[in-house]
Write a protein that binds this DNA or RNA. Structure first.
Lengths: 338, 338
DNA sequence: AGGCATGATTTGATCGTTCAAGTTAAGGAA
DNA sequence: TTCCTTAACTTGAACGATCAAATCATGCCT
C-alpha cells in the first residue's frame, strides 16, 4: 500500500547494486548462485514487483497483448468470440502477458486503433479475429513488422507474405456432420449457408459438398445462401424443404441458421396438404449455448485450445521466429436434432 | 512507423520547450492561445502521441481499468457478463481508458491478482462483478483507498463503509414478471430459484413474493430452490407442478432454470393420468440469447447502460468524490412462453 | 612474475514525460 | 524611476527500470 518497493530498495538491503538485482531476476545465469539466492530472499521479503512502466521505457516491452472486442453483444454467435477470449486471457496470463481490449467499427478504424495503441500503451502484439479476403489489417501489421496472430486463416488466394495463424477446419466440421447424417441413413442432405465470398462460409459449404461427393451424391439444387439470422434461416429452410420433398436433413453454417431451420423441421408444414409431419434432421455450427440448450446437434470448435495455440505462435512471433500455422479439427456434438 | 515522435521533437519544431508542449496538451489555460495553436499544429503534423509509460512514471496513472474474466466460457449465463464487458469496453474508451483483463480462481486469488496488477501494470481502477455477502475484495480495496466500482450491490447487512456500485433491481424484475402473469389471468404462480443466502437469488425471490402479496395471494409452498442448471430446473419444475395441480405459471431466477422448466411445461406429463396437456407459462431472467432464440419471456437487464453508469461512477471515484450508487430498472421482454 | 581471458559486480546514462522551481518580459502602482 | 506582480515560458530533476561500458577479482598460461 504505502510501500513502493523499488529495485534500489532491494539492492540496498541485499547489499548489492541495482543491476545485480535486475540480473538476478532477468538473467540468472550471470549472477553467482549464492548472490542470486540472497537477492531473491530480499525480493520475497519486501514483496518487490517490477514496475512495468519503467521497464517499458527501457525495453519497449509492455507485457500487453491487444485484442478487439465488438461493442454490441451480438446474440448467438458472439459467444464464439467470447469463449475464445476467455481462453486467451488464461493462456496469456500463463505466458506472463495480459490482454488489453479495444474497440473499432471497421478495418480502417481498427488500423487507426493500432496507431493509437502503439503510440500510447505500446502492446507487444495483437490478436486479430474474423479475418477475411484482402484483410488490410494484416498487411498493415506485416509492413511494420509488428508481431501478431490471427484466429482465422488468411483467406486471400495468394498469401503474399505468410503470417502466423490458428484456425478451426470448418470444412472438416461440415464434412463430419454430413457423414454422420449419411451414416444414419439420410441420402438427400441440403446445406444452408451464407452467400459465397466469405472464406469461412465457402469453406463450410465445401465440406458438405465433399462428403456428398464421397458418397457419390449430387449436390445440385441442395444449397441455399442467406444472411446469418434466425428468420432468414427459417425462410431458406422452408424454401428448400417445400421445393424438394426428398430432403430429410439440413447441414447449416451456423447455429442461428440451424435454429431457424428447426422451426420448420419441428413443425408440420401446412403446405404439404395431406402429407404428415415430416421430421428433418438439422445440424448447426459452433455449438453455442443455444445448441446445447435446445438439443441441437452442432459442430464444436475447440476454442480453448485455439486460444492456447494462438499464444504459442505469438510467443514464437515475439522472438521473431518464422511464422507457424495451426489448423485444428472440430468435433461433432450429436444431440436430439440429428 | 520507424519514427518515435517524442515531446522533445514537437518542442524543437514548434520552437518552444518540452514543458510548453506538455502544457498545451494538458493544461491549455496556462499557454497563450497562439502558442497553443502552433504546438497543436506540429503535434498533428508529426503525429505525436503521448507515451503512456513515461507519463505513468511521473503521474502514476496508467489509463487502465482492470476487470476479471472467468476462464471457462460458462454456457448460458456467461453471456450476461460478456455483454456487460462489451459495453464497458466502449464506455471506458470514451472516457480515455482501456480495459485490462485478468483471471482469478476465487476471492483470495483475486486479491493476489490485485497485488500483482498494482505492482506491475498499475491500473487506475478496478471493476468488480458478482459481489456477495462479506465480499473480502471490496474491503481490501477500501482499506487501500483504491478506486473501484462494483457491478452488483454490496450484499452485506450493514455496509460499514460505502463504495460506489451499479446494479439492476432484480426484485423489480421478478415483480414485473409476476404482475404480468397476474394480469394475464394466472392466480397460482410459483417461483423457481436458488438456495437462500445469495443476495441476487434472495432479491429475485423477494420480487415475486411482493407481487403475490400485492394481489392478496399466499406464496406458501410455491417456491423451490435448486442449483443453476437446466436439469435441476427441470426436476424442480416437475416437482412443483406435479405436487400442485393448480399451478399455471412459473417465475424463474435465471434462463437456465426457465429452460429446464420449459421442458416440463411444453410436454404433457404422463403422471397426470387422463389429464390433458396443461400449458404452464414460464418467465426467465437475464434475457440471454437462448431466451430470444426459443421464445422465452424473460427479464432483461440494461447491461450497456449499467456499463456506462459504472464508468460514470468510476470517473467520480478517480477524482476522489464521495461514492454514488445506481440501481437500474430491468424490463420484461414478453415472448411466447408467457 | 607478467599478461590475459573470464566471471561477477558496479557505475553512469538513458527511456519520455511531468513536477517544481527558475527565468524573462511586460504592465501597474508608488 | 524603482519595485512588485503576473503571465508565459524554460530548465533541471525525478519517476524506476535496463543497457552499455567500466571496474575488480580470480585463475591460467607462458
Amino acid at each position: 500500500m504505502a510501500d513502493k518497493v523499488t529495485i534500489a530498495d532491494v539492492a540496498r538491503i541485499a547489499g548489492v547494486s541495482r543491476q545485480t538485482v535486475s540480473n538476478a531476476l532477468n538473467s540468472p545465469e550471470v549472477v553467482r548462485p549464492e548472490t542470486r539466492q540472497r537477492v531473491l530472499e530480499v525480493v520475497e521479503e519486501l514483496g518487490y514487483r517490477v514496475n512495468l512502466a519503467a521497464r517499458q521505457m527501457r525495453t519497449g516491452r509492455s507485457g500487453l497483448i491487444a485484442i478487439r472486442i465488438d461493442p454490441a453483444g451480438d446474440g448467438i454467435n458472439g459467444s464464439v468470440f467470447d469463449r475464445f477470449l476467455h481462453g486467451l486471457t488464461e493462456s496469456a496470463a500463463e505466458a506472463g502477458y495480459r490482454l488489453l481490449l479495444y474497440t473499432a467499427g471497421d478495418d480502417d478504424k481498427e488500423i487507426a486503433a493500432f496507431e493509437d495503441l502503439l503510440g500510447a500503451h505500446e502492446p507487444d502484439a495483437f490478436v486479430l479475429t474474423s479475418t477475411h479476403h484482402k484483410d488490410p489489417r494484416t498487411s498493415w501489421l506485416l509492413d511494420r513488422k509488428l508481431p501478431f496472430v490471427t484466429f482465422g486463416r488468411p483467406w486471400s488466394e495468394l498469401p503474399e507474405v505468410p503470417h502466423p495463424w490458428v484456425d478451426v477446419d470448418g470444412s472438416a466440421g461440415t464434412e463430419a456432420a454430413t457423414e454422420h447424417l449419411l451414416a444414419t441413413g439420410h441420402r438427400r442432405i441440403a446445406f444452408l449457408g451464407w452467400p459465397s465470398g466469405s472464406g469461412v462460409g465457402d469453406d463450410r459449404r465445401e465440406g458438405w459438398r465433399r462428403a456428398l461427393a464421397g458418397a457419390g451424391l449430387d449436390p445440385t439444387g441442395l444449397s441455399r445462401a442467406t444472411s446469418d439470422a434466425i428468420a432468414d434461416g427459417e425462410a431458406a429452410a422452408r424454401d428448400l424443404i417445400s421445393g424438394d420433398p426428398d430432403i430429410t436433413a439440413l447441414v447449416c453454417a451456423s447455429d442461428s441458421l440451424a435454429l431457424g431451420a428447426l422451426q420448420v423441421a419441428r413443425s408440420p408444414n401446412p403446405a404439404w396438404h395431406a402429407e404428415a409431419y415430416r421430421r428433418i434432421a438439422v445440424v448447426g455450427f459452433d455449438d453455442t449455448p443455444v445448441a446445447k440448450a435446445i438439443g441441437l446437434t452442432s459442430v464444436h470448435q475447440p476454442l480453448t485450445e485455439a486460444a492456447a495455440r494462438c499464444m504459442q505462435l505469438l510467443s514464437r512471433a515475439l522472438e521473431r521466429t518464422p511464422p507457424g500455422t495451426i489448423l485444428l479439427p472440430p468435433s461433432l456434438v450429436v444431440r436430439q436434432s440429428a
